[in-house]
Simulated assay, not measured.
Amino acid sequence: MEFTEKEIDLFIESLSFNKNLMLSDIPILDLYMDQVITLFENKLNHLKRNEDDKILTKTMINNYTKSKILMPPNKKKYTKDHIILLILIYNLKQSLSINDIGYLLKPIIKNLNEDSLDKIEIDKLYESFLKLKELEANNINKDLQEKVSLIKEHTQNLDAHNKDLSQMLITVLTLINEANMKKRLAEKIIDEFFMNL
């Protein structure tokens, strides 16, 4: 496979980064667990790496509740707040431990369980996250094209026979390094701010 900007475009396009579970996709009525799982499978199916992967299972939901990163259901039904939290958990668990997710979501869950005037509007929080996620998805192509140019520049002297392989390996290493740095930054924010709440 040749290491080209067009190949990178095709990789990015195939991942459907702009496809999300929108607030309008969440039914107004509360859902039973099986309905929640079906909603996630239908709307987030494109996020699976392999066809056999599960986006959400009963065991996962039960474990999240036991870990107190999700409120217990109300009469076996899950509200819009539950579903938004499950989406956030899905996004967070790709990089963070359950303990770190607990620190992050604890103040939100506490606030959602209280009857107060200054209640966190989790739907607005989620909407803001989706807007920023969309901006990041739109910028990833530009950012990656810049990386590809830099990688090509820094690998000019490599043996032509293995150049594409080497460039792809360096691309993966660079992406993972960036993800690791951002993960550590997120953990530092959790350690410094959220652990003390």
Rank of each mutant, 00 (worst) to 15 (best):
residue 119 K to R: 10
residue 156 Q to N: 13
residue 114 E to G: 04
residue 118 D to C: 09
residue 60 M to T: 10
residue 4 T to E: 07
residue 58 K to H: 11
residue 173 L to Q: 03
residue 103 Y to I: 04
residue 139 N to P: 00
residue 40 F to D: 07
residue 115 D to W: 02
residue 42 N to V: 06
residue 194 F to Q: 04
residue 174 T to K: 00
residue 153 E to M: 11
residue 188 K to I: 02
residue 92 L to S: 05
residue 75 K to V: 08
residue 75 K to P: 06
residue 77 K to Q: 15
residue 177 N to G: 05
residue 173 L to T: 09
residue 77 K to P: 13
residue 80 K to R: 15
residue 118 D to L: 14
residue 166 S to M: 10
residue 11 F to W: 14
residue 17 F to G: 02
residue 41 E to M: 03
residue 6 K to I: 04
residue 170 I to Q: 01
residue 165 L to W: 02
residue 2 E to H: 05
residue 117 L to G: 11
residue 11 F to Y: 11
residue 26 I to S: 02
residue 11 F to E: 02
residue 197 L to C: 08
residue 82 H to K: 07
residue 26 I to R: 04
residue 7 E to R: 03
residue 120 I to N: 05
residue 110 K to D: 14
residue 83 I to Y: 09
residue 139 N to E: 11
residue 142 K to C: 00
residue 195 M to T: 15
residue 77 K to V: 10
residue 17 F to W: 14
residue 138 N to D: 14
residue 93 K to I: 06
residue 137 A to W: 10
residue 125 L to I: 09
residue 130 L to N: 13
residue 22 M to C: 01
residue 171 T to S: 13
residue 173 L to A: 13
residue 27 P to H: 09
residue 142 K to W: 05
residue 183 K to A: 03
residue 118 D to Y: 14
residue 91 N to W: 07
residue 128 S to G: 10
residue 89 I to K: 08
residue 52 D to S: 12
residue 50 N to G: 00
residue 162 N to Y: 15
residue 40 F to G: 01
residue 63 N to I: 02
residue 137 A to R: 08
residue 130 L to Q: 15
residue 179 A to S: 12
residue 47 L to I: 02
residue 1 M to Y: 11
residue 49 R to I: 07
residue 66 K to A: 08
residue 148 V to F: 02
residue 154 H to C: 03
residue 46 H to P: 08
residue 196 N to C: 05
residue 197 L to R: 14
residue 3 F to M: 01
residue 143 D to I: 09
residue 82 H to E: 12
residue 36 V to Q: 08
residue 117 L to T: 15
residue 89 I to T: 06
residue 62 N to P: 03
residue 178 E to I: 09
residue 99 N to C: 01
residue 143 D to S: 11
residue 145 Q to D: 00
residue 73 P to T: 13
residue 66 K to P: 00
residue 39 L to Y: 05
residue 92 L to M: 15
residue 184 R to H: 15
residue 83 I to R: 10
residue 30 D to Y: 04
residue 114 E to H: 04
residue 80 K to S: 08
residue 25 D to K: 03
residue 15 L to E: 13
residue 174 T to E: 03
residue 59 T to H: 08
residue 133 K to I: 01
residue 119 K to Q: 14
residue 68 K to A: 13
residue 116 S to Y: 00
residue 85 L to G: 07
residue 14 S to M: 02
residue 157 N to A: 04
residue 125 L to P: 02
residue 130 L to T: 09
residue 22 M to Y: 08
residue 86 L to E: 07
residue 126 Y to P: 05
residue 176 I to G: 00
residue 90 Y to C: 09
residue 108 I to Q: 10
residue 33 M to C: 02
residue 2 E to W: 03
residue 136 E to N: 15
residue 109 I to K: 07
residue 52 D to R: 12
residue 99 N to H: 04
residue 67 S to D: 15
residue 56 L to H: 06
residue 62 N to W: 00
residue 90 Y to W: 00
residue 47 L to K: 14
residue 123 D to E: 15
residue 187 E to C: 05
residue 110 K to E: 15
residue 91 N to L: 01
residue 182 K to A: 10
residue 177 N to M: 09
residue 125 L to A: 11
residue 98 I to L: 15
residue 35 Q to H: 09
residue 71 M to D: 10
residue 15 L to H: 04
residue 69 I to C: 02
residue 190 I to K: 12
